[in-house]
């Protein structure tokens, strides 16, 4: 992933979690439960690192501007748009992608029609799974508000919200 004309240079003040190598930053982080060491160009976005270098293309690019949420991953247990994260910022972090979520758990989402074309779906599922794992947030937020960072153009959202209610066993998730 060279940048032939960019003046990629590096930081000479190496830190605990970063070192420099050929104009790149060497970082370590936990990815889907496994330690990863990789040298990244400072300009790399986490989304591109995951998709093009770490063979995890489940996260999608829908807009490249943090609106659609198709690239959602969790970083240190919080949802984030991986298109807006410079990869070097995840040094020392715990990153989870769609690939970490067991397929067998997704049956409720299948049954309600939470996916149609599937392009927004990985991001939807990552956010949904995070809500499922942190259902206390439903005390202060509706499912529809929590899912608002994941744009879907196919389902009209009902299939997603219904599936999520079924998945987390919460009968009233949508509008209160």
């Amino acid at each position: 992933m060279g940048f032939a004309t960019s003046q990629s240079s590096m930081n000479h003040q190496s830190t605990q979690s970063s070192a420099t190598l050929n104009g790149t930053i060497a970082i370590r982080f936990t990815l889907n439960g496994r330690e990863v060491e990789i040298a990244v160009d400072p300009t790399e976005r986490l989304l591109d690192t995951l998709r093009y270098r770490l063979n995890l293309p489940g996260s999608k690019e829908g807009c490249g501007e943090g609106e659609c949420g198709a690239c959602t991953v969790t970083i240190d247990d919080l949802p984030a748009n991986s298109c807006l994260v410079p990869t070097f910022q995840v040094r020392g972090c715990n990153v989870r992608t769609i690939e970490s979520i067991p397929t067998s758990s997704l049956q409720p989402m299948l049954e309600t029609g939470a996916t149609q074309c599937g392009a927004c779906t990985p991001g939807v599922v990552v956010t949904a799974n995070w809500i499922k794992e942190h259902s206390s947030v439903l005390a202060s937020h509706t499912l529809r508000a929590l899912m608002a960072g994941n744009l879907c153009r196919c389902t009209g959202y009902d299939g997603i919200i219904d599936g999520l209610e079924k998945w987390i066993g919460n009968p009233k998730g949508g509008r209160p």
Partner: peptide, 27 residues
Amino acid sequence: LAGATDLLVHWPLRQAEHDKTYLDLSK
């Protein structure tokens, strides 16, 4: 640079800004 949520908007299209120097405060 803190959360980078403004900086990285349409980042691949903004190649000229890839040449600048950033100070990462995130850690």
